[in-house]
Design a protein around this nucleic acid. Structure first.
Lengths: 367, 367
DNA sequence: AATTGGTTCTGAACCGTTACGGTCCTTTCA
DNA sequence: TGAAAGGACCGTAACGGTTCAGAACCAATT
């Protein structure tokens, strides 16, 4: 038996039909509608297919005809690989993947290099819909997605009104956290936040930049802070807010350092993510500051590592967020007016927050 | 201006061409080969496209014609979401994503539910190639991938001889680890390993099952152990080997418990992954066993959490593995004979291994 | 004998694009 | 002034399927 005949042109459904002396329809049916042809013919088709090395209907051609790709695209602001380094993003991915596999749908990670404005990857993606996760609102990739005639759900983005959205109340959650710190007595604070726009700005943030921030999530978290502390009589424009472009613990540490260098008297370091907060903790330790005795540190997200560190933070259901995004997208249902889902968050009071030193709850040094 | 005319049939390249009175070729060129037509015509084309709501060439049709999907498929044995819960898998994914974004290629996560033998998702995936990561060698999804006429690279799999492969020397690495334990004096050991086949078997493993294991990685790690300990005069058939289907710390803990219940005298618990080892550590602690004084525990992989726990383990370059797999696949180069890449591993001697109690290095209780 | 019904298979249209190999017209240069 | 070159655009033929409305056939019912 010939192992595999040297096929110059790979077999197609048409060539298979010709070989068998049946119509293409019949071959197609052999694969897709077994009940539409006699079992023996079907067997003959499949046998011949094997013999000719025909791998079954071409997925792309099928997609073209059926107008279904069987995949959803995921657009991230960051280098694709970044998503696998950020615990919150991983949680989101897991949830989204969960929804996808429930629906038997593939998940296409679309490469959207934030450096180059190369939107081609979005145009090239053969998908039935898009999920957009936390990209700046002026990202050209986002614009490209919105131009595609497929359903889209944005996540951690402002409500565009035209597409589904899932997120949390970043502003309200941070407001609540701030209220907690205020009630503890903190008035002199510093903030470390993630990038606010596409341009790198590792340093202090002007109020203008805060308001103009292109990352919805960061803008709202800062605004929640500003509101709460303003209400408590703090002049927000005097609060040191440090921005870091890269999102990792090192950034949190250096950000904390920059705040503490500017104002060593701050009693609380508020970070807009747990990862940054964990970095801030290391910097505090490096300086010999005891947390929470000498300084309070808070985060945002509720990641595992933060939990283990006893971080005071806001827990948000990242996995649920991903799953909700997937469900929203895959629930073909009626194309009703765009839906907007807000998930609940929870304020977690851990061991990294306490009243400022010299406050009412001040304890004397123990043995 | 009308916001958007009610378009029953969305605009296509052809309808756009008709509207403009030019050929389809010209419209296509406007998008893909700007140098092939005059700037003013190109502008006119693009303007009209915008006016008609034409979103640019359809990616699927384009793929069909060009025979390029711009994406590689990733096949995992587990539920898709599992990949985001396993540190080693995440590292692999990160590396693979890295290679993909370098090439501007998308990464399609193919849903391969191990429960159902539903191979359709593999057939439906519009991709230019596949990466197969650590699936059992009898997995029907793997077979389906191999039937597809696209380049494929398998990872952590036996060398199929027909497709590219990347992996490590699991057998040799584990052999080396075993030698270390042997040199410390361990002879009475227990093993906790990951699933060996597609059927669930949470319990002791017969030698037969070890040899017949369908997971290449596990089979080789066990075989490395067996060889080393046999050489040291240990009757391998008497060594308790416990298998766990689910891969998480709880499995590691319960696996360790099962071994210790069978033989409380074991001086070392060898786990075939760090995750299992971390679970074993918790079980040891629960039993009041001090590591490494009362018992030695080892892992495999070199994940971060293991490192923090001071785990004795084998570090393998998971990220590099993913990147190598991607490079291999995307390096169109010559379709030479299938390549096989073995990455280097490193034996990490941490704080969880020591000579068995009663051995030469025995220390008396400290204060 | 005509109708009905069911199964099995076919023909042709269609999905939206790009590759290929031209044509036609205007410049350029000897 | 005529040949060659080059720019701009076009027509046709795939690319590999799916789908739907029948056709052909046969058996059973009216």
């Amino acid at each position: 038996m010939a192992r595999s005949m040297h096929v110059r042109r790979p077999a197609t459904l048409a060539s298979l039909a010709a070989e068998l002396g049946v119509s293409r329809t019949t071959v197609s049916n052999a694969y897709n509608r077994p009940d539409q042809l006699s079992p023996e013919l079907r067997r003959r088709v499949l046998d011949t297919a094997r013999r000719l090395g025909y791998p079954g209907p071409d997925p792309v051609a099928r997609s073209l005809r059926t107008r279904k790709a069987g995949a959803v695209g995921l657009l991230l602001t960051e280098n694709l690989s970044y998503a696998f380094r950020d615990p919150a993003a991983i949680g989101f991915l897991e949830g989204l993947a969960l929804a996808c596999e429930d629906a038997g749908t593939g998940l296409l990670l679309v490469p959207a290099n934030p450096e180059r404005e190369d939107v081609a990857s979005v145009h090239r993606a053969g998908v039935d819909g898009f999920v957009v996760y936390s990209v700046p609102d002026d990202d050209p990739h986002l614009a490209a997605v919105l131009e595609r005639p497929v359903p889209t759900v944005v996540c951690d983005q402002p409500d565009l009104g035209t597409v589904d959205r899932v997120g949390i109340d970043d502003r309200g959650a941070m407001y609540e956290l701030a209220k907690h710190l205020i009630s503890l007595g903190h008035r002199r604070i510093g903030v470390v936040c993630m990038r606010l726009a596409r341009d790198r700005n590792d340093g202090f943030v002007t109020p203008d930049r805060q308001h103009a921030a292109h990352f919805h999530v960061q803008r709202n978290r800062l605004s929640g802070l500003a509101e709460a502390f303003s209400e408590a009589g703090v002049d927000w424009s005097q609060v040191p807010v440090v921005e870091r472009f890269d999102h990792n613990m090192a950034s949190g540490a250096s950000g904390a350092a920059q705040v503490l260098d500017r104002d060593p008297q701050v009693t609380a370091l508020i970070c807009t993510s747990d990862v940054l907060a964990l970095g801030a903790l290391t910097e505090a330790a490096r300086r010999g500051l005891r947390v929470p005795h000498d300084i309070t540190v808070t985060g945002f997200d509720g990641i595992r590592a933060g939990e283990e560190a006893g971080l005071t933070t806001v827990r948000q259901p990242v996995l649920e967020k991903g799953r909700a995004a997937g469900k929203l997208l895959l629930d073909a249902s009626e194309r009703s007016r765009p839906r907007s889902v807000n998930l609940a968050t929870e304020l977690i009071i851990g061991k990294t927050s306490a009243a400022p030193r010299g406050g009412a709850e001040e304890r004397w040094f123990g043995p």
